[in-house]
């Protein structure tokens, strides 16, 4: 009887161990699949030509597969979104964590979680019908579907993550720090920006990195507002991101073109892994302190 029970316990332990390892299995599976399907095209095209080539003509008679435009567009687009999104997000987080009266705070916080929950296609749709014509009229350019509209949409989309993580970091600052600063004669605003914010800098850095990850990985909203032409990035030109390069040709691609799309996904995945490592670094440093 007891032996039987012990056996049963061992089996159940094993089942739970397996369930716990599913996550690890998924990550390994994704990595292996992306590497295996991404490598052949890079080998055929050549790593340098692939990464640094500046023309993408996948369906031409003599196709060329250079993804430098996509890489630069993704980098510029993300940088632009961070440039707009981080200051607004950080200042709004200071307001939420330190300044807001409780009632106002509840309202603003629900607005933030609503922004986080809106599907990316809805951002894309509104961007397509409000932002794109708006930019065309405002800057007198022939087509508003451009890097700039993608940057604006991305900046709005990363706001909630930046605000939420920064608020958590700012609220975790020990109140002794702030009390000491106030006792030394600093006003409350000076305390928040010169004491609380530097004390929470790891958490705020994590918020920025999280925003970078969100921005570089967004596909659908960007696809709907950026015009989707493989140009070298410029603010008012139609551009294509790493994510949209994969999404826009996948449906009809074949042969080397399809394999090259997998290679683009591999490049994107490497970017994401790098960003994750940075995120972990900042979060761990925060925890240790």
């Amino acid at each position: 009887m007891q032996k039987q029970q012990r056996l049963a316990e061992t089996i159940i332990h094993g089942v739970f161990l397996l369930l716990g390892l599913v996550t690890v299995g998924c990550v390994l599976l994704i990595t292996v699949y992306l590497v295996l399907s991404g490598i052949p095209a890079i080998r055929q095209i050549g790593l340098v030509d692939f990464l640094l080539g500046d023309t993408w003509e996948s369906t031409a008679a003599e196709p060329s597969f250079g993804i430098l435009p996509f890489i630069l567009t993704s980098v510029y687009g993300t940088a632009g979104a961070i440039l707009f999104g981080v200051p607004v997000g950080f200042l709004a987080a200071v307001y939420l964590a330190k300044l807001a009266p409780p009632r106002v705070k509840a309202v603003v916080e629900s607005a933030v979680s609503l922004l986080a929950g809106i599907p990316s296609v809805v951002y894309g749709l509104v961007g397509m019908l409000v932002l794109v014509p708006g930019i065309r009229r405002l800057f007198h350019v022939p087509d508003g579907a451009s890097l700039l509209s993608a940057i604006v949409v991305l900046a709005i989309m990363i706001l909630p993550s930046i605000i939420k993580v920064s608020v958590t970091a700012l609220e975790a600052v020990p109140s002794e720090y702030e009390d000491a600063s106030l006792a030394l004669g600093a006003t409350s605003i000076e305390t928040y920006f010169r004491v609380s914010a530097p004390a929470a800098k790891s958490g705020i850095a994590a918020a920025v990195v999280l925003g970078v990850g969100r921005a570089i990985g967004e596909a659908m909203a960007v696809m709907m507002v950026s015009g989707n032409v493989p140009n070298m990035p410029s603010l008012f030109q139609s551009v294509r991101f790493l994510t949209t390069a994969v999404a826009s040709e996948m449906a009809y691609s074949s042969g080397l073109q399809r394999q090259a799309l997998f290679s683009i996904a591999l490049v994107l995945y490497l970017f994401i892994l790098l960003i994750n490592a940075a995120l972990n670094f900042f979060l761990k440093r925060d925890k240790e302190r």
């Binding site: 996550t23 690890v24 990550v27 990850g213 990985g217 994750n276 995120l279």
Partner: peptide, 27 residues
């Protein structure tokens, strides 16, 4: 092992959905 599983979960939650879509298509 716990650290490995948690790291995997964090990695998974950072992967953009287009990559999930691609791997889901292959798999």
């Amino acid at each position: 092992l716990v650290a490995v599983i948690e790291y995997a979960a964090e990695t998974l939650s950072g992967i953009p959905s287009i990559i999930f879509g691609l791997v889901g298509m292959l798999l």
